[in-house]
Amino acid sequence: MVKEDLIKIRIEKFKKEDWKKFCLDKNISLTSLIVNSVEGKILENDRRQIIAFIEKQDNLFVKIETNINQVAKIVNGQKFIGEIELKNFSNQLSEIAIIKKKQNEMFEKLYSMLTK
Results as ranks from 00 to 15, higher is better:
Val2Gln: 10
Val2Tyr: 08
Lys3Val: 09
Asp5Val: 08
Leu6Asn: 10
Leu6Phe: 11
Leu6Thr: 15
Lys8Val: 07
Lys8Leu: 07
Ile9Pro: 03
Ile11Ser: 07
Ile11Arg: 04
Ile11Trp: 01
Glu12Trp: 01
Lys13Trp: 05
Phe14Ser: 12
Lys15Ser: 04
Lys15Gln: 13
Lys15Ile: 12
Lys15Pro: 00
Lys16Glu: 11
Lys16Val: 00
Glu17Met: 06
Asp18Ile: 03
Asp18Tyr: 03
Asp18Ser: 04
Trp19Met: 15
Trp19Ile: 15
Lys20Cys: 10
Lys21Met: 11
Phe22Arg: 10
Cys23Ser: 05
Asp25Cys: 03
Asp25Leu: 11
Asp25Lys: 13
Asn27Asp: 12
Asn27Ile: 05
Ile28Trp: 07
Ile28Cys: 06
Ser29Arg: 11
Ser29Lys: 12
Leu30Met: 12
Leu30Asn: 02
Leu33Asn: 06
Leu33Met: 09
Ile34Gln: 09
Asn36Tyr: 12
Ser37Val: 03
Val38Thr: 06
Val38Phe: 09
Glu39Ala: 04
Gly40Phe: 09
Gly40Tyr: 08
Ile42Asn: 05
Leu43Phe: 04
Glu44Asn: 13
Asn45Met: 00
Asp46Ile: 08
Gln49Asp: 13
Ile50Val: 13
Ile50Gln: 03
Ile50Asp: 01
Ile51Glu: 13
Ile51Tyr: 06
Ile51Pro: 03
Ala52Val: 02
Ala52Met: 09
Phe53Met: 11
Phe53Trp: 13
Glu55Pro: 02
Lys56Thr: 10
Lys56Gly: 01
Lys56His: 12
Gln57Arg: 14
Asp58Thr: 14
Asn59Arg: 14
Leu60Ala: 04
Phe61Pro: 00
Val62His: 10
Lys63Pro: 00
Ile64Thr: 09
Glu65Trp: 02
Glu65Gly: 08
Thr66Phe: 05
Thr66Pro: 00
Ile68Glu: 04
Ile68Val: 13
Ile68Asp: 01
Asn69Met: 10
Gln70Ile: 04
Gln70Tyr: 01
Val71Tyr: 12
Lys73Ile: 03
Ile74His: 08
Ile74Lys: 14
Ile74Asn: 09
Ile74Leu: 14
Ile74Ala: 12
Asn76Cys: 08
Gly77Tyr: 10
Gly77Asn: 14
Lys79Gly: 05
Lys79Glu: 12
Lys79Asp: 04
Phe80Met: 07
Ile81Cys: 03
Ile84Gln: 11
Ile84Ser: 08
Glu85Ile: 05
Leu86Val: 01
Leu86Thr: 01
Lys87Trp: 02
Lys87Gln: 14
Lys87Phe: 07
Lys87Glu: 15
Lys87Met: 07
Ser90Thr: 15
Asn91Met: 06
Asn91Ser: 07
Asn91Gly: 06
Gln92Gly: 08
Ser94Pro: 00
Ala97Asn: 12
Ile98Pro: 00
Ile98Trp: 01
Lys101His: 02
Lys101Ile: 01
Lys102Gly: 08
Lys102Tyr: 13
Gln103Cys: 08
Glu105Thr: 04
Met106Tyr: 09
Met106Ala: 15
Lys109Gln: 12
Lys109His: 11
Leu110Arg: 02
Leu110Gly: 04
Tyr111Val: 13
Ser112Met: 13
Met113Tyr: 11
Thr115Trp: 02
